[in-house]
């Protein structure tokens, strides 16, 4: 039930899977995105202006990346509370490599991503070694990583980054498309390919669906868990670097206290997109659409002047409604024997 129907191509096997597609998360999300785009386009002035579309694309690129970073760990049935702390740490390492050591920026970016993956390795290794749930491990490492980062940087930002960074953040294709969004989409396609077409990806899913069964089938579950955490760390680093490109500086507080500000976007994308929190089932497209919907809603609500301070309440309500709908959909599918 869990592994076979991942991203099953819509309409490929006749009427049954077409019904299933119309009941899928992805279809629901596309519908919601269209509905809200029409509502905001009609009611909020300037929502469809090139400038707003550009900002929307740039912000959603970052939110989607944060969601993908969390998704890679959820695949194993775990959580990663440290996404924010890891991402910011990786970005600060990149800033330090450039400003402190004078490393050329492409190498520094690679260094930052590698550092994120290394932090992910620490998480994954501890989860595997102690056998404790990743919740408590990443709760502790979130505090440790963030504390160490703040201590080492003295809470000061790296502002003298090469012009290439902010230029990339400001660059526009055809007046409204941000290259950051293209980076995110490329990563999403790569992830979808990983989970659908590669042995490693399939083994990750199997390890998440049933660790015991996977172990018996000869999959190195420990190694897969560590790999997923490393992937998550690298993606978190990438998200933070994109944030650096947008801000033009690497700021220690850009993910809030302990990186907690990233937690909600990190879970909203995968949960809206239908990734199972128990692990073993993943939807890259759903995560992308979910994170995009969230970004669009916050942007639209801000433009409707609902009050910037209420946006967080709406996002929380949305998470709640999304999980309720998902539950209703699942029980409907179960009743009709469709899933």
């Amino acid at each position: 039930m869990t592994i076979q129907d991942i991203n099953s191509p819509p309409g490929a096997t006749g009427g049954l899977s077409r019904t299933r597609f119309f009941l899928s998360n992805e279809f629901g999300l596309i519908l919601l995105i269209i509905v809200f785009a029409v509502i905001f386009g009609l009611s909020a002035r300037g929502f469809l202006s090139p400038f707003n579309l550009f900002t929307l694309g740039r912000n959603s690129a970052i939110n989607i990346m944060i969601g993908l970073s969390m998704m890679t760990v959820i695949v194993t049935g775990g959580l990663n509370l440290a996404v924010g702390a890891m991402g910011v740490s990786a970005a600060m390492v990149c800033g330090w490599l450039i400003e402190g050591l004078g490393v050329p920026w492409p190498l520094a970016i690679l260094g930052g991503l590698a550092f994120g993956a290394a932090l992910g390795f620490i998480n994954g290794w501890m989860v595997v070694r102690t056998g404790l749930h990743s919740f408590i491990i990443t709760l502790a490492t979130m505090s440790i990583f963030f504390g160490a980062m703040i201590f080492l940087t003295r809470a000061e930002a790296f502002r003298d980054l090469p012009a290439a960074f902010s230029a990339f953040g400001k660059m526009k294709f055809a007046n409204y498309l941000s290259p950051l969004l293209l980076v995110t989409l490329a990563v999403a396609v790569a992830l979808a390919w990983l989970y659908r077409a590669t042995l490693t990806g399939r083994e990750m899913l199997a390890a998440g669906a049933s660790p015991a069964a996977a172990e018996l089938s000869g999959i190195r579950v420990d190694r897969m868990v560590i790999l997923c955490h490393m992937l998550s760390g690298g993606l978190a680093g990438l998200a933070a670097l994109m944030l650096v490109a947008r801000n033009g500086a690497a700021i220690p507080s850009m993910a809030g206290q302990l990186g907690q500000d990233w937690l909600l976007p990190a879970f909203l994308g995968p949960v809206l997109g239908g990734t199972l929190l128990q692990g073993g089932k993943v939807s890259v497209l759903g995560t992308v659409l979910g994170a995009f919907l969230v970004t669009m809603l916050s942007s639209g609500l801000l433009m409707l002047q609902v009050g910037a301070f209420w946006v967080q309440t709406f996002l929380g309500l949305m998470l709640l409604v999304a999980v309720l709908l998902d539950k209703a959909r699942r029980s409907y599918l179960a009743r009709r024997n469709l899933a």
Binding site: F267, L315, L317, L320
Partner: peptide, 13 residues
């Protein structure tokens, strides 16, 4: 976890 993450955001909002 999911429910209290959502209510965390609602209460804080």
């Amino acid at each position: 976890f999911v429910i209290t993450l959502a209510t965390l955001s609602i209460f804080k909002g």
